[in-house]
Amino acid sequence: MRALVIDDDDLVRRTLAGILTSMQVEVTQAADGFAAIDQIETSPTPFDVIFCDLQMPGRDGIQTLRDLADRRVTSGLILLSGHTRDIVASAENTARHHALNVLGHLYKPFDRAKINVLLEAASRPRRIPQMTSNREPLTAADLRRGLAANEFILAFQPKVNPATGVVEGVEALVRWMHERYGPIPPVEFISLAEESALIDPLTDAVMRLAVAGYHDLREGHLDIPIAVNLSTRSMTRLDMADRLRASVIDGEASPEGFVFEVTESQLADNMTAFLETATRLRLMGFKLSIDDFGTGFSTMEQVSRLPVSELKIDRAFVAGAPDNPRTRHILEASLQLGHSLNLKCVCEGVETSNEWELVRRLGTDTVQGYFVAKPMGLAALRSWITEWEAKWPLLNPNSA
């Protein structure tokens, strides 16, 4: 393994280099960001890992991160600092926004065991998100054909009460099973649907599937609501409330069995039309939820006048909260805000046992995320509920 150590303090740099050398790592040293870039550009092969100090004269660590990003450096990155945790966390977030391969950080003085853990992480292949395939961009004609061919399906992700273990609902997540390209995630076709005036036909298709799911669940004696994502563009159409109600009533379902989720970042575009549609939906018996709460620009006053019944707190404020006091305070404040407005609070994107335990302790009403379950078909959902009920006492021994 080859490492580059960037630090202006000779003693610190040499100390770390000595530790790494004793661990059979080939070390190159650089006293500042300029020297580091020279080493990177002249190195015959990429470094496996780069240790970068944050506090350096001339060109600090944050500027050096930008230099690394500009050169598309893929080496594992470990930040060195004696600063407070919030500053180090901000530096790591900056590096991730630059798409750098952040492995973690080391505080001074160095912990040999922590170095070993980070080096093990550096030795593992980096997982780089891939697009669906090297195919031509999707077009409105593709989407129109897919709708006509009924290529869209729903996957259902459970939402559970962390205090009781009860499954209190599911979110219906649309997937496009393209005849040529296979599964296509929503991020690749929702914007296309909005831009090509096909979002309403897509919503109609999703509602037909959701209503079918409503009946399937009740046949299995699962009287739980189904959450469906709505585009804000649809919510600002004055006929949308009637359209959604017709989908449910014509399908012999009940509005009380559905929750419509709207992303917070899109709320302010046409608040008057949104409020009209939202209020009519609530009068019809539907529930409304603000999705990805905390990532948009809603004010407390704006949230307080929306006729919503639920806040879904974004994964960004759940991930890392067990170890990051600042993120944890934001998460706790969001839960307190929701409860002060008499709203049900859902923490989404819970993926680890530490995150589960934290949001449970902070008083979230419902949890959704891979720690509980991944999205699945209805048959798998019924089997999963049986398994979950057996697993629950192990997750919460005090529930008995």
Rank of each mutant, 00 (worst) to 15 (best):
M1S: 14
A3N: 02
D7V: 06
D9N: 13
L11C: 03
V12I: 15
R13D: 13
A17Y: 11
M23N: 15
A31I: 09
F34R: 13
A35P: 02
T42F: 06
I50S: 09
I50R: 04
F51D: 05
D53L: 06
P57A: 13
G58N: 05
I62W: 07
L65V: 06
A69L: 08
S75G: 06
G76T: 04
L79N: 01
L80C: 07
D86W: 11
V88Y: 02
E92Y: 05
E92Q: 13
T94I: 13
A99D: 14
H105G: 06
F110S: 12
I115R: 02
L118S: 08
A122H: 04
R124Y: 07
R126K: 14
Q130Y: 07
P137Y: 14
T139Y: 08
A140H: 01
G146T: 04
N150T: 05
L154E: 12
A155S: 11
F156M: 06
Q157C: 04
V166A: 15
E171R: 00
Y181V: 01
P183I: 02
P186V: 00
L192T: 07
L192D: 09
A210R: 02
A212Q: 08
A212F: 13
G213S: 12
D223R: 12
T232P: 07
T232I: 12
L238S: 07
I249L: 15
I249M: 14
D250I: 03
D250M: 06
E261C: 14
V262K: 15
V262H: 15
L267V: 13
A268N: 14
T272L: 15
A273V: 04
A278K: 10
A278Q: 11
R280T: 04
R280C: 00
R280M: 05
L281V: 04
K287I: 01
L288N: 01
I290L: 14
D291C: 07
D292T: 13
F293Q: 03
G296I: 10
S298F: 05
V303I: 09
V308Y: 11
R315S: 00
V318H: 02
A321N: 05
L331T: 03
S340G: 10
C345L: 06
V346K: 02
C347I: 03
C347F: 04
E348S: 02
G349T: 04
V359H: 00
V359K: 00
R361D: 15
R361W: 06
T364D: 01
D365K: 02
G369M: 01
Y370D: 15
Y370V: 01
Y370E: 13
K374C: 10
M376K: 09
K391G: 02
K391S: 10
P393D: 10
P393S: 07
S399F: 11
A400R: 15
